[in-house]
Design a protein around this nucleic acid. Sequence first.
DNA 1: TTGACACCCATGAAATTCCATGTGATCCCA
DNA 2: TGGGATCACATGGAATTTCATGGGTGTCAA
Lengths: 152, 152
Amino acid sequence: MDRFVSTYTNKIDAKGRVSIPAPFRAVLERDAYPGGIYCYPSLDAPALDAGGERLAQKIDALLSNLPDYSDERDELSVALYGDVQVLSIDGDGRIILPEGLRAHAGLQDRVAFVGLGEKFQIWQPERFEERREAARAKVRDHRKLFKDGREG
Amino acid sequence: MDRFVSTYTNKIDAKGRVSIPAPFRAVLERDAYPGGIYCYPSLDAPALDAGGERLAQKIDALLSNLPDYSDERDELSVALYGDVQVLSIDGDGRIILPEGLRAHAGLQDRVAFVGLGEKFQIWQPERFEERREAARAKVRDHRKLFKDGREG
DNA sequence: TTGACACCCATGAAATTCCATGTGATCCCA
DNA sequence: TGGGATCACATGGAATTTCATGGGTGTCAA
């Protein structure tokens, strides 16, 4: 199975274009639908979530459990589909990040592509470093707890 | 599979015309019946629902599950079909929104097209922003329900 | 004859496609 | 194993196309 792994940092050029890291492109080539990739603001982080067709099908599956024409379904649809943008990939493997998405993630001139398995995230590099450090610290805590439990 | 995805805001011109966003048109071209699109007031929001043939079939399916000559079916038929308009698409991909529909959604000079997967909605942009915020809040509340979806 | 509307064309801005360059990594062969 | 040739890839910019929008004209009906 193909996964998005590792982190790459690329530049946004004057036209708002960014190259998708080649390894990610390779994964997308098998999974993306011809039109491009799906991208939307992360719910709980100043970042963007992105992925291919597999990600979109997850959203569909989620909504298909709700009855047609219910308030609830419309509302979730708005949040799940209304915020999504389809970013087309040009011949050189680049996408254009629209203003709205850039604002949400605070992107300026460089972006970090962070592999998360079946999807990836797009971060402002410095912010991602902070988040990464926090995550490491947390893992250390957990390991410590685990170790204390075993040995204590 | 083709879905209506993302949100676009366009202008109503002096003649009452609005361009349907090109990505939506692409979806409609495969799905719409030649005459135009179906459009009607949303049941539970100050907005319009719209879509192509697939949407119409969904409505049919919904009604066919209810017993003939039941009050419920009559009411729903009226609610769903009674206010439906077929809007023809001109050579430049534009529609004209009749007065009745514009009134229901409070449309002035700009409209937001909101992709909802199998259909899309037409909103007065500011109202939609409020709804979008509410929807996001709700999704955050319901997070646990679809932990396996968007947040992987 | 006056609107309402379908059809056609013009235009500027934005997006997509195409081509060029630099650089770092990889490969191959002496 | 060193060193040159090659390739992959990110990046920059030009050329071309798409698209939203504005406006004109003809037709049909009230």
